[in-house]
Design a protein around this nucleic acid. Structure first.
Length: 676
DNA sequence: TGCTATGTTATTTTT
DNA sequence: TAACATAGCA
């Protein structure tokens, strides 16, 4: 073995070594939480390179862009420049890249835009006007079903009729949706996986191109892949079989959006002769945390039975703190954090508070603010989801792709310029009968509307604005300038002014716009060659890095349990350990609209993921009652706690903290204080 | 056409 | 509770 190669095996345990060293053929790495998974993946790539494999022939797929960036950084620390040559991306950006490349190859236009969920819903809303099924449907539920059809590669004609009325509605919407998306020249997230996969399945030459380009494929978080992604992998790596997947069935938490745990449980069947490696030594958490984690997850069935093995000392017993209500829970956590930081036990940045639902972050934020604890909320509403930013993006999308009627509808009367529903209705029915995109009608409005129509001049103004903007939007550094101009021309500031109640609100919203333009500037500076369309797809795929300046700041993290996947913190709080949150109410009482009913096992895995984020100290909390939908409700402790052996948790019941005589004493103390 | 008031209605997780 | 939609009114 060369010196170069052995360098990448240093300080690894035997299983890790094996996972790094065997680079040919299919491999399944079952990597428990905190078992050095990222280390193994990056070392493996470095090792491959040292063995003469070209970095350009390596593809590593991760679940989120953040994970991809992180991995690239760690890889760059190891192999420097060569790290840039490795293709490291999410399934979705990989699919987009493949799609663009293939279309260019076939000399077809790649003038499409990527629709995010909000755009998809707008598209369905549009169709809903036309389709008008007897009653109103939850369009989100329909969208979920359409997504399921797509991921199963079902054509509208293949959709089997069922009794469920949502299934029936979705079957009606499905062909219309496909048609509309085609007309808008738009693709959705599912298309980014399915279209390139279909291309590979249809054309052996195409499949070969990609599987030769990527001779070695690595997939992280394999437990979160869905059926379509498996099919994509089959196309890429089915022949050369140099496919290494890494994951943990116990951390599968995206079943609700179509992830198939089955993929990881059956990998050995899908790729016979595969090597399976267990990474079960945990280097992250103290033993007490691992005991709890193992206990919680062992209640699940249908899993590879396994246990995390501690390598660190025992640590303190995990506490469960019981508060009176949600507010006192949040206050207790905030005060505790403040105390521990003041005692120099932790820095703010070492602390995370995790919860099942975003709803719970509100009270927490209030409590943190009043305790002057700096924090950042991970997840939640994204910057690009804010209304004003979305409006601005709609302008850009329309400029990039006039066929995008959804964006056109969004902006044609925003800010209001007197092009109301009546006018729009006339234009769109003309477009529909002529079977052309809406923008054609907008372009020829003077032929369609009555000559005296007051909307005509408004439309002319709108068209002029777009033409002018489009000319300047060619990309590069000029991008930010022309967006600034656009913002001035539509007088966005005034528009925001009108829409807001308070001056503070105006300030906040206006800041989003300036932030957006700043982001655009930074982007153009980084990638001077990038086009407007590149920029837009990066936004849809969440690929833009957030400002890294405040990431390094010393702040506590508030995050959903889902958002915390892959992260670790010395001190972790998990709040709301109650029936209704963990497991979530939606799982206990499924709705008729749900595509698939969730399952308790996934909720338990979510709990497990949360627990295993903690390095040194873990605190669980719950409240006896809580404000739910504006009403106080009694809350029962989570079954994930009550099903555990008694001695595993230390109970700290704040509601029982004061016996009556103590309470009287306390009261006297307070009175004395007041009298002073 | 736009605004306001009223009612309604849902409240999980996100590439 | 609060966000959102729709109907009704100016």
């Amino acid at each position: 073995m060369t010196k170069q190669s052995s360098k990448w095996l240093k300080d690894l345990n035997p299983e890790q070594k094996e996972a790094v060293q065997i680079i040919k053929g299919p491999m399944l790495v079952l990597a428990g939480a905190g078992s050095g998974k990222t280390l193994v993946i990056t070392r493996r790539i470095a090792y491959m390179q040292s063995k003469g494999i070209k970095p350009t022939s390596i593809l590593a797929v991760t679940f989120t862009n953040k994970a991809a960036n992180e991995m690239r950084e760690r890889l760059a620390d190891m192999i420097g420049q060569a790290a840039q040559k490795v293709t490291l991306s999410t399934f979705h950006s990989l699919g987009l890249m493949m799609l663009r490349t293939e279309l260019a190859r076939r000399k077809k236009s790649s003038r499409f835009v990527v629709y995010d969920t909000a755009d998809q819903l707008a598209c369905l809303r549009e169709l809903n006007r036309r389709i008008r099924l007897g009653r109103s449907f939850d369009l989100g539920a329909i969208l979920g079903r359409i997504s399921a059809y797509k991921n199963a590669f079902l054509e509208p004609k293949d959709v089997c009729p069922t009794e469920d009325e949502y299934d029936q509605a979705a079957a009606v919407f499905y062909p219309a949706y496909l048609e509309a998306m085609q007309a808008y020249a738009a693709v959705d997230f599912d298309d980014l996986i399915c279209l390139p996969t279909k291309m590979m399945e249809k054309s052996e030459a195409c499949r070969k191109r990609w599987s030769t380009r990527f001779r070695h494929v690595l997939v992280d978080e394999y437990q979160d892949t869905n059926g379509a992604q498996l099919r994509m992998l089959r196309g890429l790596a089915g022949k050369h079989r140099n496919l290494c997947v890494v994951g943990d069935d116990d951390q599968s938490i995206y079943g609700w959006r179509g992830a198939e745990v089955r993929n990881i449980l059956q990998f050995e069947k899908d790729f016979p002769g595969c090597r399976t490696i267990y990474l079960m030594r945990n280097y992250r958490s103290v033993a007490s945390v691992l005991t709890l984690a193992n206990q919680v997850i062992s209640q699940n069935e249908n899993r590879h039975p396994k246990k995390l093995l501690p390598t660190r000392q025992s640590g303190e017993r995990v506490k469960i703190v019981v508060s009176e209500d949600g507010e006192s829970e949040a206050v207790w956590v905030a005060e505790r954090v403040a105390q521990l930081v003041e005692d120099k036990r932790y820095k703010f940045s070492q602390v995370a508070v995790l919860y099942r639902s975003n709803l719970l972050s509100r009270t927490l934020e209030t409590a943190f603010r009043s305790n002057r604890i700096p924090y950042r909320v991970h997840g939640g509403q994204s910057f690009f989801d804010r209304k004003e930013v979305k409006d601005l993006i709609a302008y850009l999308k329309y400029c990039a792709n006039p066929a995008d009627s959804i964006s056109l509808r969004r902006i044609i009367n925003w800010p209001s310029r007197g092009i109301g529903p009546t006018t729009l209705g006339r234009l769109s029915s003309w477009a529909e009968t002529q079977d052309v995109p809406l923008f054609r009608a907008v372009g020829r409005a003077n032929k369609i509307l009555a000559p005296a129509d007051r909307a005509l001049s408004a439309i002319a103004g709108f068209n002029a604005l777009i033409t002018k903007t489009r000319r300047t939007l060619k990309g590069g550094v000029a991008l930010a300038n022309s967006v600034t101009k656009l913002v001035e021309q539509i007088d966005m500031h005034e528009e925001i002014n009108k829409a807001c109640e308070s001056g503070k609100e105006v300030e906040r919203r206006w800041e989003s716009i300036t932030d957006f333009i700043d982001g655009l500037k930074a982007y153009a500076k980084n990638k001077p060659k990038a086009s407007l369309r590149d920029f837009l797809s990066q936004i849809s795929l969440n690929e833009l890095e957030e400002d890294s300046a405040d990431e390094s700041g010393n702040r506590a993290t508030l995050s959903t349990l889902h958002g915390a996947k892959g992260l670790e913190f010395p001190l972790v709080f998990i709040i709301g350990l109650e029936e209704g949150y963990l497991p979530h109410d939606r799982v206990l009482n499924p709705h008729a609209t749900d595509v698939q009913s969730g399952d308790i096992a996934e909720e338990r895995r979510l709990c497990y993921v949360g627990i295993t984020r903690a390095r040194d100290e873990l605190v669980l909390t719950r409240a006896d009652k809580r404000l739910v939908n504006g009403k106080f409700r009694e809350r029962a402790p989570s079954r994930f706690i009550t099903e555990l052996p008694d001695d595993i948790l230390e109970v700290d019941d704040l509601t029982q903290a004061l016996a009556p005589q103590d309470a009287r004493k306390k009261l006297a103390e307070i009175k004395a204080l007041l009298n002073n």
